[in-house]
Simulated scan of single mutants.
Amino acid sequence: MTTVSLRHARVRYGPVEALHGVTLAAPGPGLTLLLGRNGSGRTTALRALAGAVPLSGGAVVWDGTDVTHVPAYERARRGMCLVPERQAVFGSLTVRENLDLVAPGHDAALEAYPELRPLLDRRAGTLSGGEQRMLALSRALLARARVVLIDEPAQGMAPAVAARTYEVLAGLRACVVIAEQRLPPALRDRQALVYELRRGTVVFAGEAGELRRYLG
């Protein structure tokens, strides 16, 4: 078991406060979804958990330990993996080289995304958006992290590949936190903890089924 949480977290970008005292907890193994429109704070919350943006107030707690001032690279070393929405792969390297940076053997990643096999010698920067997402997620799978933070994992993917992606993420023995604009259809019947954010505050917290009733 592992849990990452924000406690009364505040994040500022210059004069603008993006998170207004957000409190949420993501237990694992399992899925936690951060939902909200652009500007809601969902991506900022994800990046705050990873240490990619500093807090101006509040705390980040991981398994009962305050890691607010632990840098992102140290959180990564301890088993936290962030897959951002953009610039999640090394565009100048080949697909094979991107995977080799994480682990020399990439059979597990190619089992999840066999579409990457014929692309191993292509430079990542020449891939389509969906192919780059598959590569970024493959890197995360190879990392075998205890906490996986992903911003819009299925962006640009075909529906069948997107459904497979959510299936893979739901099966990980890790604390998986996903930021999305809305609840993905593939996860509507999954057991998942859901937080909906609006304008930097949490307006709903509960199970996925409760969210459907909340939205009517």
Rank of each mutant, 00 (worst) to 15 (best):
L6D: 02
A9I: 02
L35V: 06
H8A: 15
V161A: 15
V194Q: 00
S56N: 07
L31A: 06
A162M: 02
G21I: 02
R75E: 00
E115C: 06
R182S: 12
V83D: 07
A158Y: 05
A88R: 07
R122Y: 11
L197E: 02
G30Y: 09
E131P: 05
E115A: 14
A45C: 13
R96V: 03
E131Y: 05
Q181L: 03
L119M: 14
I178H: 00
E74Q: 14
A76Y: 10
D107Q: 13
A205K: 09
R42W: 06
A109E: 01
M134I: 00
T23Q: 12
F90D: 02
L169G: 01
M157N: 06
A88M: 08
Y195M: 04
L6M: 07
A154Q: 10
L55Y: 08
C175L: 01
P15H: 08
L46A: 05
Q191W: 04
Y195C: 03
S92P: 01
A208P: 13
G206C: 05
A170P: 08
Y113W: 13
V11N: 03
T2K: 11
R122W: 08
L119C: 07
A109H: 08
D63N: 15
L24T: 07
Q155M: 13
G209Q: 13
A140T: 04
G209H: 09
A140R: 04
L31M: 10
V16R: 15
G58V: 03
V22H: 06
G36Q: 01
G41H: 08
W62R: 13
Y73N: 14
E167A: 15
T32C: 13
A109G: 08
P118L: 03
E97C: 04
H20C: 11
P27E: 12
M157D: 04
D151M: 00
V70I: 14
R10H: 15
V176Q: 02
G171I: 10
F90M: 09
D151G: 04
L35Y: 11
P159K: 05
E74K: 14
V89E: 07
R47Y: 10
G216A: 10
A52Y: 04
A18T: 06
A76F: 09
P118N: 09
L101I: 12
G79R: 01
I178K: 05
H20I: 01
D151A: 08
Q181S: 11
A208G: 12
Y166H: 15
R164C: 03
R164S: 12
Y195H: 12
D63S: 12
G30K: 07
R12F: 09
E152I: 03
L127P: 06
G206Y: 01
R122Q: 15
L197S: 09
G41Y: 05
V147D: 01
R86G: 14
L149Q: 04
G41V: 03
H8D: 15
G79A: 13
T65H: 15
V194W: 00
R122E: 14
V67D: 03
A72F: 05
S128R: 14
G30H: 09
S138I: 04
R42V: 00
I150L: 09
P153K: 02
R47G: 03
L193T: 14
V177G: 04
E97R: 14
P114I: 03
A179P: 07
E74G: 01
V176C: 04
G64F: 04
V202H: 01
A170T: 00
G36V: 02
P71G: 09
A179Y: 00
M134F: 01
G21W: 05
R42I: 05
V202E: 02
T68Y: 11
